[in-house]
Design a protein around this nucleic acid. Sequence first.
DNA 1: GTCTATATAGGGATAGAC
DNA 2: GTCTATCCCTATATAGAC
Lengths: 215, 215
Amino acid sequence: MAARAPNKTRERILSRSLIMFNEQGEPNVTTNHIADELEISPGNLYYHFRNKDDIVEHLFQRFEDAMDQAMLVPEDRDANLEDIWLQLHLVFECIWEYRFLYRDLVDLLLRMRHLKMRFSRILKRAHESIVEVCSALVRSGVMNASRVEIEALANNIAMATTFWLNFEQIRPQIGAKTDPDLGRGIYHVMMLLAAYLRDGERQHLNDLAESYING
Amino acid sequence: MAARAPNKTRERILSRSLIMFNEQGEPNVTTNHIADELEISPGNLYYHFRNKDDIVEHLFQRFEDAMDQAMLVPEDRDANLEDIWLQLHLVFECIWEYRFLYRDLVDLLLRMRHLKMRFSRILKRAHESIVEVCSALVRSGVMNASRVEIEALANNIAMATTFWLNFEQIRPQIGAKTDPDLGRGIYHVMMLLAAYLRDGERQHLNDLAESYING
DNA sequence: GTCTATATAGGGATAGAC
DNA sequence: GTCTATCCCTATATAGAC
């Protein structure tokens, strides 16, 4: 009953769209551009997708799945600093892969209301996850922070993670087309934590961040 | 030789554009929309401005002036916590007034390259200003942070200030069309500082933030 | 300074042949 | 599944009358 073969053109459209959206920004890529690039007709593209938003939506679904995967927290034990480092790394990679979503986030989410709810859910889960991990750090004596401070910290970490790429793009030095160094972003997010750590672990974290930045 | 009277239509276009850009997002407002709203013809609008970017550019100029004004640091003495609070307040007000620039910042600055340089200059100045103020706090014994930590902190403060409004817009709870509370943003930025303050001042800052949030 | 009218271009989307 | 042809609509921008 289903299509005889896995739909190759459909998949080509999705993956090429992702590349073009990431490179040029979603608002600047039209369905015609995508069709041109793939050397198919616009009509063909519209056979596979109702419209451009439909493409965006399918890409968002993949992003959502990838983020849910990246945010999994070890449940059998309390998280430690290395866990955080690893998790941030996974999340940053995921954001990087679907960075077009973040570039015009506000406009995109206002235009497609149901995506806003789904994105909010991700943010909410991220926030809870951060609070949980920080609480674990407090329990294990590594971190020293009140409940209120943890809440504010979680908020700032979520925001920093969400907008790091955008911030990188508008900073002074970046003139060349070099890809931003995700390590820098992770480093800065970890520095948000650092202030609340006890001296030993604070140093430990600094070393970790330092080594990560240098390679 | 000059126009007999200060150009009223020109000014009306600018101020109305600002309102519409802020409300609907700059990419979603066309020159026709603006002309309609003002009940003038599109042709008339184009008599006063070469194109839409020309309008954006004039608004950016005003933003730039306002920001330069808002970022003035007292030079005759070391800054204290109240100074920071006041300055953040001024900057947040300024951002709020020209929030359309921030909503689609990356796309806007990539489209208008010279604006990117000017915006970078503002960011750079903000960064320096924050470093300076923090250094003053360290000198006066209120803050405890290394040079490296101050750099990271300044970076994070600049980023948080830049993207606070965007973050507010995509957070879970915000469904209604209520204006976001700038106080919340200022509070969170100050919480970035809090971790590095000595206990007494840390409490002082918490009180300040607390009272600011409650009214 | 302001209007009407219009040129131009491009994007989104569909119909119908193959 | 794919293509060609086309329609509709909107946005930017200009010319020329008033």
